[in-house]
Amino acid sequence: MARVKLEVGKSGTVIIRIPFNLEMISKINSVEGRQWNAEGKYWTVPFSKNMINLLLSLFRYDTVELCPRLKAITDVPENGGDCVKKANYADKYEKTLQEIDNEMKLRGYSQKTRKAYRCQLKEFISYCLDKGWRRIGENEVKDYLDYMMNVRGVSTSSIDQAISAIKFIFTKILGQPGMILSIPRPKKEQRLPQAFSLQEIGGLFRQIKNIKHRAILFLIYSAGLRVGEAVRLKIGDVDIDKKMLYIRKAQGKNERYTILSQVALESLRFYLELYQPEKWLFPGAQPGRHITERSVQKAFEDARAKAGIQKEITIHSLRHSFATHLLEPGTDLGYIQELLGHNSDRINSLDGSEE
């Protein structure tokens, strides 16, 4: 069981010592004012009673050790000892989470969506642990969302995802579709999509020496593909004569064709002659598997760093740049939406949320 240690630090701070655990680190990153001390290998946060209680809430299902001074100012019961709250959650609810995951798998949910929902539902069920998740009602859902927003300060996109995951429980598992109809979704932040300039695109691709990486990144940019679509292309999806790509089971289970530029086509031809793939257009290191999304993302990140591009921009920005550079000469927006695989009522959805 993971152990959290809280101590009084210098200059009005609290020291947090945790093992290397991505879930724990994610929780600490939600705390305002946190700082990492690389030399001491610990985190610090501002000292206050509210802060201590917040930390105890965040780590309520882990073993938390408090130094005597901190224990004296918190709301921890005297008989709590050094172990504030232990997580019997994992054993008790792992089977439930597995059943929910199996149900999502049967309904065709992607692995990425299942993983995200499972994480959200784990947090939600943990929050309602003492109630028994099958007895949770609308008030508990609202309390949890209020806790996420006002205590943990998570993003609106994370809250929106939590609502979708909770909705899955009530509509698909418990058969209560009307239970959370009155739960409002947070208003999404309006963000302008980041895009590369044509000069940055040129500088980026000049840094990509790997033929395979160059070909797949050219396709992502030239054809407006999502990374997940690009890595899953098969040999038969490429129509060289018509300069078209066939995208199978794209987001929303819609299939579509999209264009293949002359520059990308030349890069692809060179790659095909050199690698001669058989099934997957871009095979991975493991036999019979396609290249991973992470491998492509890493190739992009390396090229961006070498090109000296300072924008906070991701590989998905290549897809946005495709749309931007088509719009600059006056290409019809509806045509661009069709190529990108957007529904007709999603004109304003190019905000990076679909990846």
Rank of each mutant, 00 (worst) to 15 (best):
A2W: 15
V4D: 02
V4P: 00
F20V: 13
N21G: 04
M24P: 00
K27E: 05
G33W: 13
Q35S: 10
N37F: 08
A38P: 10
G40Q: 08
L55N: 03
R60P: 00
D62A: 09
T63S: 10
T63F: 09
V64T: 07
P68T: 00
R69F: 01
R69I: 01
A72K: 06
I73P: 01
V76C: 02
G81V: 06
G81H: 06
D82S: 05
K85M: 14
A87S: 15
E94W: 15
D101K: 07
K105F: 15
G108P: 15
T113S: 15
K115E: 07
Y117Q: 03
R118C: 04
Y127K: 04
W133M: 07
I136L: 03
N150R: 14
T156N: 14
I159Q: 05
I159D: 04
D160F: 12
Q161N: 13
A165H: 06
I169M: 09
F170A: 03
K172C: 10
K172M: 08
I173N: 04
L181E: 13
S182K: 10
I183L: 09
P186N: 07
K187V: 09
P193Q: 11
Q194S: 11
A195H: 12
S197N: 10
S197P: 10
G203W: 05
F205D: 01
I208Q: 01
I216S: 00
L217A: 05
L217Y: 05
G224F: 06
V231N: 03
R232H: 10
I240P: 05
D241V: 09
L245G: 01
A250E: 04
A250W: 10
T258E: 01
L260D: 00
S261Q: 11
Y275H: 06
Q276F: 07
P277V: 12
K279W: 12
L281H: 08
F282W: 14
F282E: 00
G284W: 11
R289P: 04
R289H: 15
E293M: 10
V296D: 01
Q297N: 04
Q297R: 14
F300R: 01
D302F: 09
F322I: 08
F322L: 05
A323D: 02
L327N: 08
E328P: 09
T331Q: 15
Y335L: 12
Y335M: 14
L340F: 02
N343Y: 10
